[in-house]
């Protein structure tokens, strides 16, 4: 979240500088230089808008958090590559992994949707995507109490309509 915000601020700064340079150089030196910085301003503006959108989505995910974990492992279905990730927030509208955002539920039935959730003693396995691509995400959830897991599952059901499949906790309570 912080890295997204920092990048947005950087783009805002770059935009201001490039606009200023376009105006100054246009007035003092040459029209070509002004045009170059004007084009740079347009590109920076586009990047700033994109980053602002990401920042807004990240804010939405953070505001509606269900679970926050310090580490995660992400993999894509039909591909054997697995990627370790930084701090992860699971929320009603998607997942924020470091500066990467995986959104679901933002465009209703027409966009990416959460399909299933499985929780065992160590990991939470989420499947989400649309018709073109399905993503799998493995999280080390770090939860040690059964009540906390049930609480997270209940929140997931309430907020996303997906019932989590909990396994491996029955044996612990029985032993």
């Amino acid at each position: 979240m912080d890295s997204i915000r920092k990048r947005r601020n950087l783009y805002a700064l770059l935009l201001s500088v490039s606009i200023l340079l376009a105006l100054l150089l246009g007035a003092i030196i040459s029209r070509q230089a002004a045009l170059f910085f004007a084009a740079a301003s347009l590109i920076t503006l586009f990047l700033l808008l994109r980053q602002s959108r990401l920042c807004s989505d990240a804010g939405l995910i953070r505001d509606n958090r269900i679970l926050q974990v310090p580490a995660a492992l992400i993999s894509i279905e039909n591909s054997h590559t697995k990627r370790p990730c930084e701090e992860t927030i699971v929320s009603t509208f998607g997942i924020l992994i470091g500066s990467d955002i995986y959104r679901w539920g933002l465009k209703g039935i027409h966009g990416i949707r959460l399909h299933s959730v499985e929780i065992d003693r160590e990991r939470m396995h989420l499947t989400f995507g649309d018709k073109s691509q399905i993503m799998n995400l493995d999280l080390l959830h770090g939860l040690t109490r059964k009540e906390a897991v049930q609480d997270a599952a209940e929140k997931l059901w309430r907020e996303t309509g997906v019932r989590a499949d909990i396994s491996g906790w029955q044996e612990i309570s029985e032993t």
Partner: peptide, 17 residues
């Protein structure tokens, strides 16, 4: 007790459904 942005997103999802 949720943000206005959250309400807007839920509303959009409801309209879609």
């Amino acid at each position: 007790f949720i943000s206005e942005n959250t309400v807007k997103t839920h509303a959009r999802n409801i309209y879609s459904k």
